[in-house]
Design a protein around this nucleic acid. Structure first.
Length: 376
RNA sequence: GGGAGAGUUCCCGAGCGGCCAAAGGGAGCAGACUGUAAAUCUGCCGUCAACGACUUCGGUGGUUCGAAUCCACCCUCUCCCA
């Protein structure tokens, strides 16, 4: 159940109560595609990183270790040791990112496994069944995320197919939630808005999927090649059509600045691989901008990554040490850097919420929306 | 003392008369990364007034229109025999 607490302009402060935990929004979901945060960060580490939600992937976990195994192990919460909200992505994004390895049909998508080339099929029903087995808190609809650029004609076709898939997702989820052997019988389902960069398709699609009265709504298919300005325009175009009393999730976004812009336009939830992936590549977020720890200038830097940061890495280590770990290819480098970046993102969301509570979001926006994405 | 082999740009290592400023690694330097086929990928990596010029392949001298590549001597290293 979602409660809208207050607004600052378009920005929303809210609370999303689920069977596993209550999520304060705006919130950032930490990506753990294969049921693990890449970089060697465990569920027990997430406790001290202010993590609220873990995000896992249907496609990846179906292939390995298999959703039936996870079900036999008691579901993702028991399996990973994470007891708060888990959102599972549907595999829809893989329709986009594994474009060389798949074929899309009305019934669903035929993939070649990226692990061993084995042919697999996934449609709305399969995705729901897998996510039900995984027993996440929130399941995402199985959608098609089209590449950018795509023609208006194709984007329309894909968005309408995604709508039809959504009906099937809803039916299957209701069926699964009523089964006695389902682990999480209160599994929620979020619908996903598509339509590429075309406002008319986006709005029409949103109007249709809202009628299904799902537990939340996501804006998908963004940050896949269009400009940031186009992305903001689409969010603004579609937002008036989204239910006020349901969480809104901007999928796969993004840079700190993108998130602040998203919040300003009424988005409640975000996720992105950027903090974890970039961390593994030595790019660290700070309250003064982004640093690349691989740069020679940090060789003898005695400061922590960020002086104001309370993460385990900043409390214990210098930039010089972390830089050394990266150059020496020590696993510890990735672990510490990922912990820092996730803590940074989670703290960013916390500060956004504080700003909203204090009715200071606009000044927060002015201060940080550009600064945090700047390289220093 | 006798015999065999080797010395290439920061390192390893190809090249063995012109297409060589010299393959390929590594290191170094920088960049990218947005619902993770990513602990990945890309670029630069002799010098300069730089679509050209200059100096480099242990040293010196030679052969040749032309040499990292051929010859002579020298220096250094490795291995084998005494």
């Amino acid at each position: 159940m979602f409660t809208l607490i207050k607004k600052n302009g378009g920005a929303r402060l809210g609370r999303f109560e689920t069977v596993h935990s209550t999520v304060e929004t705006p919130g950032f979901m930490n990506v753990a595609t294969c049921a693990a945060i890449k970089g060697g960060v465990s569920a027990f580490d997430l406790q001290e990183l202010k993590t609220q939600v873990m995000l896992c992937n249907t496609y990846h976990l179906h292939l390995r270790p298999s959703d039936t195994l996870v079900k036999d192990m008691g579901g993702l919460h028991k399996f990973t040791g994470w007891n708060k909200m888990i959102l599972t992505d549907s595999g829809g994004f893989q329709v986009f990112s594994l474009s060389q390895l798949r074929k899309i049909k009305e019934e669903g998508v035929y993939f070649a496994s990226h692990i061993d080339g084995r042919r697999i099929f996934m449609g709305p029903e399969e995705s729901m069944r897998i996510q039900s087995n995984l027993a996440s808190t929130v399941a995402m609809a199985f959608d098609e995320c089209v590449a950018n650029p795509s023609t208006h004609e194709y984007s329309k076709l894909a968005a309408e197919r995604t709508e039809r898939w959504l009906w099937r997702c809803k039916d299957e989820m209701e069926r699964l939630n009523s089964r006695s052997d389902t682990i999480n019988k209160k599994q929620l389902l979020f619908g996903i808005n598509q339509g590429c960069v075309y406002d008319d398709l986006r709005v029409k699609n949103m109007e249709k999927i809202v009628k299904l009265d799902l537990d939340g709504y996501a804006i998908g298919g963004l940050a896949v090649g269009e400009t940031a300005q186009e992305m903001y325009r689409i969010i603004a175009a579609v937002e008036p059509y989204m239910p006020v009393d349901k969480p809104r999730y901007l999928m796969g976004v993004g840079k700190p600045g993108n998130i602040i812009e998203g919040v300003r336009r009424g988005v409640d939830l975000f996720d992105c691989v950027m903090p974890s992936r970039n961390a593994r590549h030595g790019h660290l977020f700070t309250w003064k901008g982004i640093i690349n720890l691989n740069n020679a200038k940090y060789d003898r830097d005695e400061n922590p990554v960020d002086e104001t940061c309370g993460c385990p890495c900043c409390k214990n280590h210098t930039r010089a040490y972390l830089k050394h770990l990266f150059k020496a290819e020590e696993l510890l480098a990735g672990r510490l850097a990922v912990m820092h970046n996730l803590y940074f993102y989670n703290t960013l969301m916390e500060k956004i919420r504080e700003a909203l509570i204090n009715d200071e979001f606009e000044s927060f926006y002015e201060k940080y929306s550009k600064l945090l994405d700047t390289r220093i």
